[in-house]
Structure formats: C-alpha cells, structure tokens
Design a protein around this nucleic acid. Structure first.
Length: 580
RNA sequence: GGCCCCGUAGCUCAGGGGAUAGAGCGACCGCCUCCUAAGCGGUAGGUCACAGGUUCGAAUCCUGUCGGGGCCGCCA
C-alpha cells in the first residue's frame, strides 16, 4: 500500500529485466535508486533518479538509458505517462485510478495504513528520561520523555520490536544528597527547624517525604548520625521519588517497559563482569591521563587510574573506570548497564540524553562497539533545552533556588496533548521555545490547534452527512466509487495521504519523530485548502446532492482523518472530534 | 586548546546528494446568502554564514575559516 515502494519495485524489476536482456551490465548496485515525489508537481507524480545513478557504472549516457527505461515503464498498467527531463530524471504520471484506489485501501486498513516492516522485527531499546530520582520531573525532562516515547511508538509502527527503558540513577552521590535533604524534612516533621544547607535540595516536594519518614520511623532516627540512617532514608526517599516520577510520566501518557537500577548493578559482580569483558579484549589498562589541553584544573596532578581504551573506537581520550582510590567512576556502572543491554540481545540501542551529556556520546558508543564486537549500534539523540515563555518573557528557572517549572505545572496549564505535540515541533537538537500563550492560541500559528481543527472539520462533515441519512461507516465509504474524485485538488489530497508510509520509513530510519508532527501539519494544510476551495467551487464541497458523490468525497476526508489519527497516535496525542 | 550541536526569507523554523530551496509569523492584496473564515488564495521577501574540495549534480557529503551555544581528569 506504499505506492512509492510499489513503483520503486516496478522500476527495479524493469532494470533487472534490462540486465537479463543484456541492455545493462549485471552486478549493478541498485540501492541508490529512489522513487520520490518531485519537488515540482508539474514534473509528474513520481520521479526516479535511476538513469542518473546507473549511467556511470553501466558505462552509458543517462538520457538514452532513461528513455529505454521510460518505454518499459510506460507499458505498465499503472503508468499513464513516463518522460525524461533534465539531466536524466524519469518523471512518471500515474493513472488517476491508482490514486483513487488508495482511498478505499486506507479506509480498509484503518490506522494500520502506513505500518511498515522496515524494522524487520529487530529488537531496539530506547532509553529515555532517566531523570535522577531526586525530585519531580521538570520541563527539561518533559521534552526527552516525549521525544523518546514518540520515537518508540514510531519504531514500533515501522516494524521494530521496541523496549522502552528508564535507567534509574540511584547509585551515586546525588541520592545521598536526597537522603540528607529528606532527613531535614523529617526533622521538620517533628517540629524541629530544618537545616537546608547549601548543596541540599530545597524543594517543598520533600516535605511529604519527611512526613512519611516520621510515619514510618517515628522519632527513632532523630539525633542519630548519618551512618545510622543514610542508607535507609536514601532507599525510602528514592522509592518515593520514583513513585512521583512514574505518576508524572503517566500524566504525560508515557509508559515504560523496563526500569533498570544503577544501584542494582553494585555488589552483584555485574560491573566487574563488564570491565572484565573489556579486559579480555585488551581494552583495560593502568595509566596516567594527560591534563585536558587549554584548561588545566588548578589541582590537577597526574595519577595512575584504570582506563578504558575508548580511543580504539573513535573517542578522543581513554576514559577512567576506576578512581585513583580504587573505587568505580560514574562511567563504570554505565559500562555495566550497556553491557547488560547488549547481552539482553538488542540489535539497536537508542539513548535520549540532555545536550549537556554530549561529552559522553563517544565513550558510550565506544563501549557498545567494544562489548558487542560492532554487532549492536548505539544512536544517541541529544535533546536541546526548552525555553519557557510567558507573556513574551522568559521564565527563569533555577534548580538551586527551587524555582524550576515542573512537568506537572505544564500539564495542568496546557494539557498533556499540547505538551506532547509542541515538544515535537522542533528537531531534537534545536532549542525549543515553549510559549504558554501561543500553544493555547486557536490559530494556524499553533500547529497543535491547526491539526486538531482539520480533524474536527472532518468529523463535522461526517456528522452532517450522517444526519442527512447517508451511510458513513468505513466499510460503506471504502466501497464508494472513488472514480468520482477526479478533480486535481482531490488527487493532490490523495497524493499527500500517499506520502504517509514513506514518511514513516524516513522518520524511522533517522530516528526522528518530529517529522511526523511536520507531516501532520502539511496534511492538515492540504485538507484546509481543499475545504476552502469549496467556497468558490461548490463541486469540491464534501457534501453533495448526490449520495454516491458525497460518499466518495467523504471517503477521502475520512482517509485523511485516519492518517491524522494514526500520526497523532504515534505522537501520543488524542485527536479531538470537535473544537470548543 | 580539544570535542559535539547550530548558522537557510525581516522573525521562528522545515528540508540533510537531485530539477526553479519550502512553511508559519510579520507586510501588502483578495475570499464568508454555502459542510466551523478558529480557515483559504495571492504578492513581496534568499550570495542556504564564508572559502575550497568530492560528484553528472551540493543548502545537503568532506576540509578549513568565522559567528552562537554546550561539554571537557577521579563530580553525577
């Protein structure tokens, strides 16, 4: 049902036939042969670069080659016209029936239309959010959460076997800070004055944690040294924080398949096993690193550490896995965690990180390459920061001052659907302005509204037709006489629908969910355009006097609605039936 | 100093080997007795930061330069 891949298959088949006949040499690489929508519709419905790509390896001129291929393609029942243009482009025009036939096929497939087998069932792990369990999620996490969740949905739609995973950083010093902060709130719960010292987490969200500690332990931890309570309070507090984070994720419509714990890696030999796996490959050694060039820390002194030879896999310097005192660095459990992912049998790993982690990309890729012997790929998507705007002013946020805007605040103010869509209106590596005023605006300037409005219009016209007593179920619509959709504007609408499976594959190949959002905007734009042409040309209105014509036209509208629903499902956004 | 990301219309951004580079906003001109005008059509606006290179073909790939941001020993 992907018309572009169907026509590409036709082109490939004809090339192979030419090879069989000796018109082309054998052994040609056909992977670069593409069938695409042309930039200018005047060039036709589809264009292929086949002749230009093959001319040189075949030792032929592109234009004659294109002519020969065109003659063969023109014989196919789906092709109305095949012409050669420019340096050797092969422009194809499809018979209207091919386009018209798509409408019924979309309605028959429903939201499975566009589903792809591109992923071929390969197992992919998408690790995202992975916020420290030290507090509720805030806006910076929200973008990563949405991007990861939408990407996971996209890959599943495109044929991958997807696991969504959250890595809980519960093993480092920051959870000790959490414990100390919570302990002060515990003292506060007992009527004592909390001492929120510099470096502790000042947020109010720890007050209930203090109350809960009091409820569990009573006064038994008061006036005791840290060695008595730290471990217990830490576990207690991180569990509560993870519960908060899970609720935040649920409110955003994000579900995880697996929560992995950093702490669980310690004391189980998993870190040692991962390091040993590297050691067996000769990639671990004792050595001294050069100071970083141009910026030598004041207290820098050369010390011998246990190092991972990540430079063998494209990193800039080798990375310490053990500190000079013999304890693990933060990197060590990361190695173990990625070793774990590799041994769990994933074919591909994707990590969604904040852009401030860009320095870790190379070393993690090195780890995965080394531990999987290049079997497993790791793609790391860096999420640029989100700037919040309100009334034209930048909302200042400071973690230290406890003035950050939480994800919950965002959702309460604009709703999860808006948060999700807006977070996908930029490429992941571009900074994003989240303008509170704009995202709620009901205008075409607001893509969320614009797409939802298109869907509402489609539903409106369905409702109207139904009220007029015309059968509007998908099965009836799918059987409508699509030959009645002959106007160029209608064909153009169908052609936009035809791009959906192709868009899914392009987006999945690049791990770029934002493309879905942009596509939906274009699709909505096409629909609004068609709708308004009904003002000047009544024959283009969806509801006509004649029942068969009405059913065909509404079948087209409904097909657009199906694709909108499908795309919004990937983004995790609920389609609205009616604007209010 | 090194590494990563970014530089495309006045503004915000898509496009990331293919033909005459797109969209929204802003500006200007039009379109509601008719399914939601919360919308649509049109006009104006570009040395795709710059310079080399690869290629039949470069905004796209490579190298370098300039500008903006981020990261940079044992912290997480």
């Amino acid at each position: 049902m992907n018309l572009f891949s169907e026509i590409r298959a036709l082109v490939i088949a004809q090339i192979e036939a030419m090879v069989a006949e000796g018109a082309l040499p054998s052994g040609l690489d056909l992977s670069n042969v593409a069938v695409e929508p042309p930039r200018d519709p005047a060039h036709g419905d589809m264009a292929t670069n086949a002749a230009m790509v093959l001319a040189k390896p075949a030792g032929q001129q592109p234009r004659p080659l294109a002519e020969a291929l065109a003659a063969r393609l023109a014989a196919d029942g789906r092709i109305a016209e095949a012409g050669v243009a420019g340096p050797g482009f092969l422009n194809l025009r499809l018979k209207p029936g091919v386009w018209q036939g798509l409408v019924g096929a979309v309605l028959a497939a429903g939201t499975d239309y566009g589903r792809s087998t591109l992923g071929a069932g390969k197992r992919v792990n998408v690790e995202f959010v992975s916020a420290n369990p030290t507090g509720p999620m805030h806006v910076a996490h929200a973008r990563g959460a949405v991007v990861g969740d939408a990407l996971a949905a996209l890959l599943a739609f495109a044929g991958w076997d997807v696991t969504r995973e959250y890595y809980i950083n519960d093993g480092g010093a920051q959870v000790d800070v959490l414990a100390r902060s919570a302990y002060e709130r515990y003292r506060e719960a007992h009527g004592l004055e909390p001492e929120i010292r510099e470096g502790l987490y000042p947020g109010d969200y720890l007050i209930p944690v203090g109350e809960a500690l009091k409820a569990k332990y009573g006064p038994s931890l008061l006036d005791k040294g840290e060695e008595v309570w730290l471990a217990e309070v830490r576990d207690f507090a991180t569990d509560l924080m993870m519960a908060v984070i899970r609720e935040d994720l649920a409110a955003l419509g994000v579900r995880m398949d697996v929560y992995s714990s950093e702490k669980a890696l310690y004391g189980t030999g998993k870190i040692e096993a991962a390091i040993n796996a590297l050691r067996d490959k000769g990639l671990i050694y004792e050595g001294v690193l050069e100071p970083p060039k141009g910026k030598t820390p004041d207290d820098w002194e050369p010390r011998e550490q246990t190092l991972f030879r990540s430079t063998a896999f494209g990193d800039d310097v080798d990375r310490p896995v053990k500190k000079s005192d013999g304890s693990w660095t933060y990197f060590a459990p990361d190695i173990a965690y990625h070793y774990d992912k590799v041994t769990r049998g994933f074919d591909e790993l994707i990590n969604i990180f904040g852009a401030d982690h860009s320095g870790y990309v190379k070393r993690l890729k090195a780890v995965v390459s080394a531990l999987s012997e290049n079997r497993v790929t790791l793609d790391i998507k860096l999420i640029q920061l989100v700037k919040l705007l309100k009334g034209g002013e930048i909302v200042k946020m400071s973690k230290r001052a406890g003035t950050f805007v939480t994800l919950r605040d965002l959702i309460d103010e604009v709703g999860a659907d808006v948060v999700r869509f807006v977070m996908l209106t930029r490429k992941n590596d571009m900074a994003l302005d989240f303008d509170f005023d704009k995202v709620l605006e009901q205008s075409k300037d607001n893509p969320v509204f614009y797409v939802q409005y298109a869907n509402a219009r489609i539903n409106s016209v369905l409702r109207k037709a139904r009220e007029a007593g015309i059968a509007m179920d998908d099965a009836t619509l799918a059987a409508a006489d699509m030959g009645l959709l002959s106007h160029p504007a209608e064909i153009a609408m169908i052609q936009k629908i035809a791009e959906w499976p192709r868009l899914v594959e392009i987006a999945a190949k690049g791990n770029e969910a934002h493309r879905v959002a942009f596509y939906l905007y274009e699709l909505a734009s096409e629909l609004h355009g068609l709708w308004n042409r009904g003002n000047d040309e009544p024959s283009l209105r969806f509801i006509q006097d004649e029942k068969a014509t009405t059913q065909a036209k509404i079948a087209l509208a409904r097909a657009v609605g199906v694709v909108i629903a499908s795309g919004l499902a990937i983004l995790g956004v609920t389609p609205v039936e009616e604007m209010r």
